[in-house]
């Protein structure tokens, strides 16, 4: 292992989008068992700080790899592809977003909201599948667009969840 391993190497995983989440979680826990600050309570302040920083780094790497959107972005970055700063204006996608937003604004009942959230999750799963194929085929520009679209869905999902709190 090099001195500055990337997130995948840190957990001893192949650098690829489709990772086994159970293996990731298992390797994460094994690392934490060794490095977590709880193991260094009786050590000197320098070593304690180091354990804290390393654990924070391991946590960050874990959460990046666990989340498909962040993992996708990280992979693009590793491949040296810098994401487009402009949003790809796909009229069909934008129309869908506008309609979903309008639908969300009308929702007043928890059951309707749950149904809406389920649909969002389905669409996100489709896009993640698509992202996986694009990254495997090294189609970085189109993968970048899919990531942008996923980001839109994620924001919509967050707004829907905020609404859930006011409905209950």
């Amino acid at each position: 292992m090099s001195d500055n391993p990337n997130h995948f190497q840190l957990f001893n995983l192949t650098v690829t989008f489709d990772i086994d989440s159970l293996t990731l979680a298992q390797h994460y826990r094994e690392l934490q068992r060794m490095i977590h600050p709880d193991n260094y309570i009786n050590a000197g302040s320098g070593e304690r700080l180091l354990a804290l920083q390393k654990t924070a780094q391991i946590n960050d790497a874990y959460h990046t790899l666990k989340d498909p959107i962040q993992r996708g972005r990280y992979l693009l970055n590793l491949q040296g592809y810098s994401p487009s700063t402009e949003f790809h204006k796909d009229p069909v996608f934008l129309m869908e977003q506008i309609e979903l937003r309008e639908e969300l604004m009308q929702i007043q009942q928890l059951t309707a909201l749950n149904e809406f959230l389920t649909r969002l999750e389905q669409r996100m799963r489709q896009l993640i599948q698509q992202l996986s194929h694009q990254l495997a085929a090294q189609q970085f520009p189109t993968a970048d667009i899919t990531l942008q679209q996923l980001q839109f869905f994620k924001r919509l999902q967050e707004e829907a969840l905020t609404l859930e709190e006011t409905l209950t």
Partner: peptide, 13 residues
């Protein structure tokens, strides 16, 4: 300390 930490990581993996 830093070397021990890296060693621990390698050992864990």
């Amino acid at each position: 300390a830093a070397r021990r930490m890296d060693h621990a990581i390698r050992k864990a993996m």
